Computed example of a mutant assay.
Amino acid sequence: MADSWATSEGTRRSMLANKRRDTTTELAVRRLLHARGLRYRVDYAPVAELRRRADIVFTRARIAVFLDGCFWHGCPEHATHPKRNAEYWGPKLAANIERDRDTDRRLEEAGWRVLRFWEHEAPSAVADRISTALTTERRD
């Protein structure tokens, strides 16, 4: 484990096991959207030059959906602040939140609607809000 950022081998294994896509929350929401007849792109960059990927993208409606993990994106209800290796985690998590705000701003400037949800939100409620946003877009 030489030169690793992890504080222990267990931490290293745990961090490597984190999924970038197809999380339980994403799969549940996508399953509900698909059952409603909605079609979308998965893990897709709405604006290629931006090099940031949304979890679910509706290209025609120009809606980018992000399903954010509470730890990684600073959920106001569930975020935790690690005590071990805090000098690493504090700036890393703060940078994630700042990048999220920058992504929102840049996508909106490019004409996209950004929807963000927390991993702890009920998949059915998330799917309802996405469906509503799509219906609203189609009427405009």
Results as ranks from 00 to 15, higher is better:
residue 49 E to H: 07
residue 51 R to D: 07
residue 51 R to A: 05
residue 52 R to H: 06
residue 53 R to N: 09
residue 55 D to W: 01
residue 56 I to E: 00
residue 56 I to N: 02
residue 57 V to L: 04
residue 58 F to L: 12
residue 60 R to S: 11
residue 61 A to M: 05
residue 61 A to F: 01
residue 62 R to H: 02
residue 62 R to Y: 01
residue 62 R to S: 08
residue 62 R to A: 05
residue 63 I to L: 01
residue 64 A to T: 07
residue 64 A to C: 05
residue 65 V to A: 00
residue 67 L to K: 03
residue 68 D to E: 12
residue 69 G to P: 09
residue 69 G to S: 12
residue 70 C to N: 02
residue 71 F to H: 02
residue 72 W to P: 12
residue 72 W to A: 15
residue 72 W to Y: 07
residue 73 H to R: 05
residue 74 G to W: 04
residue 74 G to V: 08
residue 75 C to W: 03
residue 75 C to E: 07
residue 76 P to R: 04
residue 76 P to S: 15
residue 76 P to A: 11
residue 77 E to L: 14
residue 78 H to W: 06
residue 79 A to K: 09
residue 81 H to A: 13
residue 84 R to H: 14
residue 85 N to K: 02
residue 86 A to Q: 08
residue 87 E to Q: 13
residue 88 Y to I: 14
residue 88 Y to V: 14
residue 89 W to C: 14
residue 89 W to A: 13
residue 89 W to L: 12
residue 90 G to P: 02
residue 91 P to Q: 11
residue 92 K to I: 13
residue 94 A to R: 11
residue 94 A to D: 10
residue 95 A to Y: 04
residue 95 A to H: 14
residue 96 N to Y: 09
residue 97 I to D: 03
residue 98 E to M: 08
residue 98 E to L: 11
residue 98 E to V: 07
residue 98 E to S: 12
residue 98 E to C: 08
